[in-house]
């Protein structure tokens, strides 16, 4: 457990030293979302109607953008091999890396989401559910993304491959995440959506460390 804490702390330290990366993800998030009014027109009702969907899709793309770096630096400088040799089980190490990734990518996105909700004239009564859904959904994005990042280590065109591998697997999180917010905005209960979102997170919490560790092992061999 202490090893895990040390690993997360190290990754966070590294991320803070390069805090530009986290800022870039947030900037991408806001900037890309800000393009939509130009695309579909500034009509407030339309923007409010599609706001949850846009916030989710753009958040998903912002996470995607940050995935390639998840293991790449450690792979190139050899610290991944150290991690493999350390007494800490690799599955836990993957969880630690994912936690650090989520803290530096998912969390800033959630913090920036209210800004987008205001820009899109979203009814702020749904804001709480939107943030709760993102809190449950973005860890899933980081977990699944970690598997994609681990599988493509050392691949030709690894950066282009990750979206192809990961995006289809993001569909359930997207559906339930948007569904929860839409339901709240329509005055319906968001509970079933949020429960399903949590269920997906739990399933991924079990599968992805196993798959990610297996992927890292075969990448190092």
């Amino acid at each position: 457990m202490r090893g895990l804490a040390l690993l997360v702390a190290r990754d966070l330290r590294l991320a803070l030293r390069q805090s530009a990366d986290a800022w870039l993800a947030v900037l991408f998030f806001v900037l890309t979302a800000a393009l939509f009014p130009f695309g579909v027109g500034p009509e407030p009702n339309l923007l409010a109607r599609i706001a949850p969907g846009i916030i989710w899709v753009v958040a998903l793309l912002a996470v995607l953008l940050s995935l390639e770096r998840l293991f790449l630096a450690d792979f190139e400088d050899g610290s991944l091999e150290q991690l493999l040799l350390s007494p800490l089980p690799l599955e836990l190490a993957v969880l630690g890396k994912v936690l650090a990734h989520w803290l530096t990518t998912g969390l800033p996105l959630i913090a920036a989401a209210p800004l987008l909700a205001v820009l899109f004239h979203m009814d702020l009564s749904g804001l709480g559910v939107l943030l709760l859904a993102m809190l449950l959904g973005t860890p899933t994005l980081s977990l699944v993304g970690a598997v994609g990042a681990a599988l493509t280590l050392g691949a030709r065109r690894g950066g282009v491959l990750i979206p192809l591998l990961v995006l289809p697997l993001y569909v359930p999180a997207l559906i339930f995440g948007v569904g929860a917010t839409d339901a709240a905005l329509l005055g319906l209960t968001a509970r079933p959506h949020l429960l399903l979102l949590g269920a997906v997170l739990l399933v991924m919490l079990v599968i992805t460390p196993l798959a990610g560790a297996a992927a890292l092992r075969q990448a190092i061999e």
Binding site: V147, P168, L169, I175, A211
Partner: peptide, 28 residues
């Protein structure tokens, strides 16, 4: 060999996800 092993892991992750995707898409 690396391609084989990476693709095998992906296929297993995919097959676990297919019921979840199917359910979520039907729901949607």
């Amino acid at each position: 060999q690396r391609g084989y092993r990476a693709a095998a892991i992906l296929a297993l992750v995919g097959v676990v996800n297919i019921p979840i995707i199917k359910f979520s898409v039907d729901w949607w």
